[in-house]
Design a protein around this nucleic acid. Sequence first.
DNA 1: GTAATACCTAAACCTAACTTTAGGTCAAGG
DNA 2: CCTTGACCTAAAGTTAGGTTTAGGTATTAC
Lengths: 146, 146
Amino acid sequence: MYTIGQVAEMFDLPVSTLRYYDKQRLFPELERTSGIRRFGDTELEALRVIECLKKAGMEIKDIRLFMEWCAEGPSTYPKRKAMFEERKTHMESEIAKMNRALDMLKFKCWYYEQAIQDGNEDRLKALIPDNLPEEIKSTYENAHTQ
Amino acid sequence: MYTIGQVAEMFDLPVSTLRYYDKQRLFPELERTSGIRRFGDTELEALRVIECLKKAGMEIKDIRLFMEWCAEGPSTYPKRKAMFEERKTHMESEIAKMNRALDMLKFKCWYYEQAIQDGNEDRLKALIPDNLPEEIKSTYENAHTQ
DNA sequence: GTAATACCTAAACCTAACTTTAGGTCAAGG
DNA sequence: CCTTGACCTAAAGTTAGGTTTAGGTATTAC
């Protein structure tokens, strides 16, 4: 069992954020001894899940819903699984979008590298997609797909 | 040249967002004819860059800085390149984090699949990392790295 | 001529996710 | 004793990134 300060250190989060999560009922089984929060394994695992679901673009109120399901017992396994499945799909498409943005960034790095060498963008602006150098062509194309 | 409504449709953005971006000086070279905004190629490319940089986690005020550099001419090529390099690095690490979160999601999908079959989490909770099934082991390990 | 549209502005409003503030309890150390 | 530090609460404040509102102009459709 850990105090709020220890958990804050372990997860590199401000104490105020942990209190905020608690107030948002993200730790439904959190215990207290004379008013003081005691974080156990359940809460540490909850925090790992919270970090994951936040990264997956979920809002606090939906994370709370999940925590409530956990407290409800085995009858909610299917709901919980469906939620993770839905998040997985969402996340895969987010990662795909980020990879497209990353290709754009790579293309821009190449572009400015060239611009610095040329001293201007004249040659680059005259370049049509078809005659981009092989090394950058597919990156450019990915970057401009949807 | 396009009107704000046409651009809104092309980029699937509300008109109000385009006006907001303009107010934030994200289109420093935007022209107007009798008060009405006229979006040209420069602005369309700016919008593509804005979408990319937002996805890369940049704030509006930093995107503005980049747009100002573009308006300043060739002397800012190095700054612009450095900015894209920095974003590229940042984005690569973001994608790595998202992939770790995705592994956690995959693990949880597997976990609840098992829990549904078992009717409870007893067997799962007794499982120690070392004797997880091969199919899920590396996913579990990735999900718990960092 | 009047009604529906598409455009314009300034300014108020909104939301999520925290963070800060103000005030208080309690235990240990000097 | 009294001060330092870790904990507590409720409530107000903050920030980014828009969105909405209220009021106005100009063009086209009937």
